[in-house]
Write a protein that binds this DNA or RNA. Structure first.
Lengths: 239, 239
DNA sequence: TAGCATTTGTGCGTATGTATG
DNA sequence: ACATACATACGCACAAATGCT
């Protein structure tokens, strides 16, 4: 708990309580310890603990009950498998009920250096860019920007908008199967765009993946940069 | 850039500049834009930008030069491959010169529920726990806690202390080869322990992996929880 | 050499946010 | 709810170092 660090004490404490809930430290009671206990544990005033709990309540993670304590509303982390056959929709599987994929924006444009490299295209070759938002149980789970080579996938944005699934949209373009050839995983603080689309608070963490998918012949067909709220998603790699 | 969020503006800006440096946005000049430009871009006072740059200078990422600008000293992130044959030392490869692994602590103790499950042991079976700190070029790269079944690996802590390598220590116990069978990746805010061991600032992000290694016969021999500073490390998965 | 534009470094006054008791 | 202390953010002004004309 460091002061004068640019991060308010109440937020540092909120982050630690959130982590403790996620790793099951309070599973026995299903409640957060009393405010006075937390205040003593963290070495701060009770006001400060209350500010932290208030923020977590705002996030929908806690529900305070007068005279009883502060209940934990269990929100498991979605576990997304990364494998040679990574698909968001299938990966979520039984973990959530209401799955949706929305098309936020799309455009045809010349490829940037990073995109043309990833897709093995000539510099500035034309590509289709689509911006998507995926949700599970009405909570934002990923904000993704994907690029596809043109003219092969001209019109794919419409196909995605109809189905809400990249796999289905690609199938409409004759791609029966595709494989994940590379995934880079990093983590950064949420940017203003994430806050709006995913409903996050400043200082929140987003996991960032940069992935390349290829068709069965090994030709890259999609390069995607996706951003996942780290408190709602984790990755599993089984090789 | 949201105010009154528990995260100081200068820290939010420092995080965005760090991310911009990491993704190569300023590679053309090798310098950060002038303070007045950054202030206008982010819509804040120049003092606030200076507080952000000062923090990054403290991290050793920037060097300001009066009359010239602010030079970028380090932008590369260590890329750690995750595969069936994941090894920290080999994974770093050519990316760093001085590699070291220090043994911080070790003890023999009964397995917790998570550990006994991961290692396929009976509840409370005896295990060896070792705490390690790995560094590359004198910068902390991972803080790791690993568990090994007993009595098979009794004395492994000493072997690790001598070599600074898990692979070498295991070989001393007759394990010529081992494979990574599972990796879970998530991200959280740094805890006080991370700040000290890895030299991080509050609010910093740590990537967390939970991994199981098994010997060639498929018997789990190691369960490890590792914490990596997200601004120094990223993962690559090639399947 | 002198002058000028650009850029980082510093000081001060004020308003708001954070943490305590 | 109030009072207090400190951190954060702003606006304005000016000093100091550098490169160019």
């Amino acid at each position: 708990m460091r002061r004068q660090s640019g991060v308010a004490l109440w937020r540092q404490i909120a982050d630690r309580i959130r982590a403790a809930i996620a790793d099951g430290s309070y599973d026995e009671t299903g409640m957060v310890p009393p405010e006075t206990v937390l205040a003593a544990d963290f070495g701060v005033n009770r006001h400060t603990v209350r500010a932290a709990l208030s923020a977590l309540t705002q996030e929908g993670m806690l529900r305070p009950v007068q005279g009883i304590g502060t209940l934990i509303l269990r929100r498991e982390r979605l576990s997304l498998p990364i494998s040679r056959r990574t698909r968001f929709t299938e990966g979520v599987g039984e973990q959530a009920r209401a799955l949706s994929g929305a098309l936020l924006d799309h455009a045809e444009e010349p490829a940037s250096a990073a995109v043309s490299t990833a897709l093995h295209l000539a510099p500035h070759a034309p590509v289709l860019r689509i911006e998507t938002l995926r949700s599970a149980d009405k909570r934002g789970m990923s904000r993704s920007t994907a690029w596809f080579p043109l003219p092969r996938f001209h019109g794919l944005a419409d196909a995605f908008a109809k189905s809400g699934s990249v796999t289905a949209a690609l199938r409409a373009f004759g791609v029966e199967d595709y494989v994940r050839v590379k995934t880079e995983i990093s983590a950064v603080h949420a940017e203003p765009g994430d806050l709006a689309d995913l409903g996050l608070a400043p200082g929140a963490i987003v996991l960032v993946t940069q992935a390349v998918n290829a068709d069965p012949e090994g030709m890259p067909i999609q390069f995607a940069v996706s951003r996942f709220p780290a408190d709602r998603v984790q990755f599993t790699v089984e090789v």
